[in-house]
């Protein structure tokens, strides 16, 4: 279980998160929604250890996470699909995937997991020897998700995985996420595609200007007129 409690984070003098509290329980899909610049990525960076919170605490499986060095977070069972994918573009698809299983806890099962990723995304098996940079955006997103899965995470963080993808692709990616969750992986999903995210997730948090502006079950938020106005307005179908 992930517990974020009163986290404040800043870039220099600029306070990007001012007291964020949220939790993600085992087996849950939690959506983190909010407009541009709300601080969603900043929170992900805090959880993955790339940014140290100025105040507050992050706990994972009943142990503090915010003093763990960034590279040791994966070893604890938290993997991330970062904003903008951040693949190793000059390396092949398979090298990227194998790097996902770099940490000791993932090494024993890496052949099986590789097979598993190729089953989920058969396209990647065909392109395993290709340089990742040459792939389309959708295929790159598959590599990014595959790389995170290679770590065998208990919690998967995704930062806007639908960004820049065609609607059909988004749908199939979200299907994959549902499958991953059914196999027992908790998911914290950052999204701007609010409709899709709320359909997929169990619970959601609304982040605005560095604060949690609302939370609740996905179904309740989908029906909440305020949410519909603010987030789904013109896009609501």
């Amino acid at each position: 279980m992930l517990e974020v409690r009163g986290v404040e984070a800043a870039y220099g003098p600029f306070l990007a998160l001012s007291g964020v509290t949220l939790t993600a329980r085992p087996g849950e899909i939690v959506a983190l929604l909010g407009p541009n610049g709300a601080g969603k990525t900043t929170l992900i960076r805090c959880i993955t250890g790339l940014l140290r919170p100025r105040a507050g605490g992050i706990r994972w499986e009943d142990a503090p996470l915010d003093r763990v060095p960034a590279h040791a977070i994966v070893e604890r069972g938290i993997a991330v699909v970062p904003e903008g994918r951040r693949l190793f573009g000059a390396m092949t698809v398979e090298e990227n995937l194998e790097l996902g299983a770099f940490v000791p806890r993932a090494r024993p099962q890496r052949a099986a997991r590789l097979e598993h990723v190729y089953t989920i995304f058969p396209m990647l098996r065909e392109r395993r020897r290709q340089i990742t940079r040459a792939l389309s955006g959708g295929q790159q997103q598959m590599v990014a998700i595959g790389r995170a899965l290679m770590a065998g995470p208990k919690l998967l963080l995704l930062d806007e995985p639908s960004l820049g993808l065609a609607p059909r692709l988004v749908e199939s990616i979200f299907d994959v996420l549902r499958e991953i969750n059914r196999s027992g992986v908790s998911i914290l999903l950052v999204e701007q595609n609010v409709q899709a995210a709320l359909t997929l997730s169990h619970r959601a948090y609304l982040l605005e200007a560095g604060r949690v502006a609302g939370e609740g079950s996905a179904a309740a938020l989908l029906d909440d007129p305020r949410v519909r106005r603010a987030y789904l307005g013109p896009l609501a179908r």
Binding site: L50, A70, H71, I73, F88, E98, F102, A151
Partner: peptide, 24 residues
């Protein structure tokens, strides 16, 4: 080599390397 790949990954994007669990 495992660490050879880690070195290349770090060269390309050290933050992404950190996020995949590489001690850069």
């Amino acid at each position: 080599w495992r660490w050879g790949r880690a070195i290349r990954a770090t060269a390309e994007d050290w933050e992404a390397a950190l996020m995949t669990g590489i001690d850069v």
